[in-house]
Amino acid sequence: KKYKVVEVKENKDGTVELVVENENGEKKKITLSKEELDKLKAGDTVELK
């Protein structure tokens, strides 16, 4: 499934919390490390299994 990044929030521990949404409007929260996030920004599309 493809999800669009709608919100990006940095946590104090250096991880980043993303809120992503698919075309049905379903939202998910995922947490990434700073390194994983470096290639993402709001409006990008991510694929989740």
Rank of each mutant, 00 (worst) to 15 (best):
S33L: 13
K41W: 08
E17A: 09
G43Q: 04
E17P: 00
V19L: 10
K41A: 08
E17S: 09
N22H: 07
K2H: 04
I30K: 01
E7A: 10
V6S: 03
D38H: 13
V46E: 09
L37T: 15
V46F: 06
L32D: 00
S33W: 15
K49F: 03
A42D: 07
T15M: 08
Y3Q: 00
L40Q: 03
E36V: 10
E35I: 12
L18N: 00
D44C: 11
K4I: 08
E10Q: 07
G14A: 02
V16Y: 13
E21F: 04
S33K: 14
K39P: 12
T45H: 07
K1N: 07
K29P: 03
G43L: 03
K9Q: 09
K9R: 12
D44Q: 05
L37D: 04
K9F: 12
K9L: 11
V8P: 00
L18K: 00
L40D: 01
A42Q: 08
G25D: 01
E7M: 11
E17H: 08
A42Y: 04
L37N: 12
A42S: 07
K4M: 05
A42L: 14
K29Q: 12
D44F: 02
G43T: 04
N11Y: 09
I30S: 01
E7P: 00
D38S: 13
V5D: 00
K34E: 05
G43Y: 03
Y3P: 00
K28V: 12
L18R: 00
L40N: 03
K49P: 15
T31C: 14
V20P: 00
K27D: 01
E36S: 14
I30E: 00
L40T: 10
V6E: 01
G43R: 03
T31I: 08
T45E: 14
K2G: 02
L37C: 15
L48F: 05
L48C: 15
K1F: 10
D38A: 10
A42G: 03
K12Y: 11
T15W: 11
E23I: 07
K34D: 04
S33I: 07
L48V: 15
E17Y: 15
A42P: 15
K41Y: 06
V6A: 02
K1T: 10
E17Q: 09
E35P: 11
E36Q: 10
K1D: 02
L18M: 08
G25L: 02
E10W: 10
L48Y: 01
K28C: 15
L37V: 12
I30N: 00
L37F: 12
N22T: 08
L37W: 13
E17T: 11
K2V: 11
K12D: 09
K28T: 13
V20G: 00
T45I: 11
D44M: 05
K29D: 02
N11C: 14
K34T: 10
Y3V: 01
E10Y: 10
N24G: 08
K29E: 05
V6D: 01
Y3E: 00
K49I: 15
E23P: 05
K28S: 12
K28G: 05
K27R: 13
E26A: 07
E10S: 06
S33M: 14
K41C: 07
K41M: 09
V5G: 01
G43S: 05
V5C: 14
K39G: 15
Y3H: 01
K49C: 15
K27A: 07
K34W: 11
S33G: 09
L37M: 11
D13Q: 02
N22K: 03
D13G: 03
K29C: 14
E35C: 15
V16I: 09
K29I: 13
K39Q: 09
E10F: 06
K12W: 11
Y3R: 00
V6T: 06
E23W: 11
E26W: 12
K2R: 10
K2S: 05
V20N: 00
V19D: 02
I30L: 14
T15Y: 10
D44P: 02
K39R: 09
E7Y: 14
S33T: 08
I30Q: 01
V8D: 00
L18I: 10
V16C: 13
N24E: 12
G25T: 01
D44K: 05
K34N: 07
E35K: 12
T31Y: 14
V8M: 10
T31E: 04
